[in-house]
Nucleic acid binder design. Sequence first.
DNA 1: TAATAATTTTACCGATTGGTAAAGATTGCA
DNA 2: TGCAATCTTTACCAATCGGTAAAATTATTA
Lengths: 214, 214
Amino acid sequence: MKARAAKTRRKTRIQQENEERILEAALEVFSMHGFRGATIDQIADAAGMSKPNLLYYFRTKDAIHRLLIEQLLDNWLDPLREMDPDGNPLQEIRNYIRRKLEMARDFPRESRLFANEILQGAPRVEDVLKGELRELVDEKAKVIREWGRQGKMAKCDPYHLIFSIWATTQHYADFDVQVRAVLGEDMSGDGRFEDAARFLDQLFVDGLKAPGKN
Amino acid sequence: MKARAAKTRRKTRIQQENEERILEAALEVFSMHGFRGATIDQIADAAGMSKPNLLYYFRTKDAIHRLLIEQLLDNWLDPLREMDPDGNPLQEIRNYIRRKLEMARDFPRESRLFANEILQGAPRVEDVLKGELRELVDEKAKVIREWGRQGKMAKCDPYHLIFSIWATTQHYADFDVQVRAVLGEDMSGDGRFEDAARFLDQLFVDGLKAPGKN
DNA sequence: TAATAATTTTACCGATTGGTAAAGATTGCA
DNA sequence: TGCAATCTTTACCAATCGGTAAAATTATTA
C-alpha cells in the first residue's frame, strides 16, 4: 500500500489536460468504429499528439476504453435510479423517458460507445450487466408491477417496458444517421428532439388507438 | 455488354457452395465486429478455407460486405412495404410490429450487421437511406397521417412512430446480450419473444395509463 | 540556477492487416 | 482419356497494427 501511494501522487497540470484530451478523442473514435475498429494512431491524431506520447498517459488501448466505459456506466443508470416509487407513476415514467431522451441528445457519442460494446458481445461489461444493471432493473420492475397492481397505471411487463424506453430513446443517438436521412438534414436538432419527446409521451401514455374509444 | 456476358456465365457447383459458405461466415463475423473490426482471416477461418482461397471468390473484404448489405436491404423493408393503406390501421400496425419482431428473432445477425453499419456512420448505405428508405417511409407516413385524420387511430407523428417500431423490435436483436443479462439466460428465446410481442401490442395500442380512465 | 522530474520525440519492433503471384491439384467435359 | 477450365495451396508483399527503448526536451522545484 505504501509503495502504491507513491504512484498515486497528485496529477500534474499537463497530465490532467492531456488525459482529458485523450479521453475526448478516444470517445470520438471508439464511438464511431468500436473497439477493434479504432486504432491508437487515430486517437492520437484526434488528440493532436504522437502515438508514443499518448501511450505515455495510457499504457494500452484497452486502458483508455476501459476508463471510458467506466465513466459512462457511472452516469448511464442515473435516470432509472431517480425513478421514485412514491411519485405519480405515469409522471415518473414520462420523466424517465424525457431524461433518457435528453441524454441521447446531449451525449450521443457515449450512447454509441455503449451500443457498440453491447452489439459486439459486451466482452468488457458483461459483469456490470449481470450485476449492477440487473439488480437495478429488478428493483424498478417491482415498483412498476406494484403500480399496476394498485391500478395507478396499466398492468404490463415492466422489463419489456424498460427495454422499450431504452430502445426508443437511445435510437435517436445510435441511429442518428438513419433518422437524419429520413427526416432530412435541414430540420434542426431541437425540433427533432421536441417532436420525438411529444410522440413518445403520447405513445407511452395513450397508445395509438383512436381517442374516445375504450 | 458482350464482353461482360462471357464473365457472367453460369456458376459452378463449387462456386455456389463456397460463396454461400463465405457469406454465411462473413455475416457471423461482420455482425459481431463491424466492418473494420472484422478480418478476412477470421472470415476465412469461419468458412473453413484459406484466405487466398476466399479471395478467389471475393476479390476484396469490401465486396463481401457490400453483397451482404445488399441482400439484407432487399428483405429489410419488406414488412413496411406490406403495410396496407386499405387495411385496419391498428391491425396493420400490429402486424408490422410482429413481422419486425419476428425478423429480429429469426435474423439477429442481419439486424446487427445493419446496426453496426448505421452506428458507424453508414458510409456504405447512405444513398439507400436517403433514397429508397426515405421514399418508402414518406409514403407510409402519409398513409398513417391519413388514418389519423379519418379518426381511425390517434393522430401522431408518423415518422417517430415508425422509428419507435424499428427501435423497439430491433432492440431484441441488437441488444440481445443486454436483454439476456437482465432477464436471465434461463428463459427460453420463445418465451422472451412472446412476452415482448404481448407487451408491444399493449404499448402501441393502449399505452400505459390505467385502464378505464380516459 | 542547478538538478531533478515530467514530458515529448525519434527510431524502432514483431505481429497482423488486406491483398497478390504463381505453381499445383482437381474438376468437368469432348 | 486427355485437356482446358476451375479451384487450392504455398510463398510472399507493403502497409498498418499495438507497443517499446531511449535520447532529447521541457517544466518544476530545492
